[in-house]
């Protein structure tokens, strides 16, 4: 059975468990998702389902998008994402909601991390930087040496340098489901989830159970 949804990160808060301890929770507005296409090994070469999420005004979508969604008789949807699964009883046009997840289950949440722009090595790779004192006023966040001398005479590929950081796909693995509210399409997972508030996330069954 498919365990996957598309959602929107709402933000973090805390709830209390049975023993009264505060649990940090990320709330996700998950689903309802519609199965917009089923990809078959015979036809596409692999098996997956395409889910759609986020109702939009029809005029916001292109004719091609509307035509594609019409095939599955789903409403106009803003986001489409694919989930690789071994096909089972899933059909085009099915609606999926949060109640597929139970309390205590482990899930992976995939999102796009917050962009940090052009970042130095101290922020990006946790380099130590240089000394603040001993006359080294301009080496505080410097990367230090990037290679050796005549041998090898070059900088090895893959050496960690400053550059763009963030806004990349990140998976938060094995998060515990602590809240399921089918009425409000709310899913709460223990801990943090990549991305800013309002960003799109994919929720899947945990890979490492």
């Amino acid at each position: 059975m498919l365990k996957g949804l598309i959602g929107k990160k709402i933000g973090m808060t805390q709830i209390f468990d049975e023993s009264g301890a505060a649990v940090p929770v990320t709330l996700i507005e998950a689903g309802p998702c519609y199965v917009t296409q089923v990809r078959l090994p015979e036809k596409e070469g692999y098996s997956a389902v395409q889910l759609g999420f986020g109702e939009a005004k029809p005029k916001r979508l292109t004719g091609g998008q509307l035509g594609h969604l019409k095939k599955s008789e789903s409403p106009p949807l803003r986001f489409l994402r694919e989930f690789r699964i071994n096909l089972s009883e899933i059909k085009v046009g099915d609606m999926l909601t949060v109640d597929m997840f139970g309390l205590g289950e482990r899930v992976d949440v995939i999102g796009t991390s917050k962009g940090k722009g052009f970042a130095g090595v101290v922020k990006k790779y946790h380099f130590r930087g240089g000394s603040k004192t001993h006359g080294a006023s301009d080496r505080v966040r410097a990367p230090g040496s990037s290679s050796a001398t005549t041998t090898p005479g070059r900088v090895f590929k893959g050496t960690r340098r400053s550059g763009h950081m963030g806004s990349e796909r990140v998976t938060a693995q094995g998060l515990k489901v602590v809240l399921v509210d089918a009425e409000r399409n709310l899913l709460g997972v223990n801990g943090a989830v990549p991305g800013s508030r309002g960003s799109l996330v994919m929720i899947k069954d945990a890979r490492k159970q």
């Binding site: 709402i10 808060t13 709330l27 507005e29 409000r184 508030r197």
Partner: peptide, 9 residues
Amino acid sequence: MIDLDKNFN
């Protein structure tokens, strides 16, 4: 979007 402060207390 669901408002965190208004809808989840």
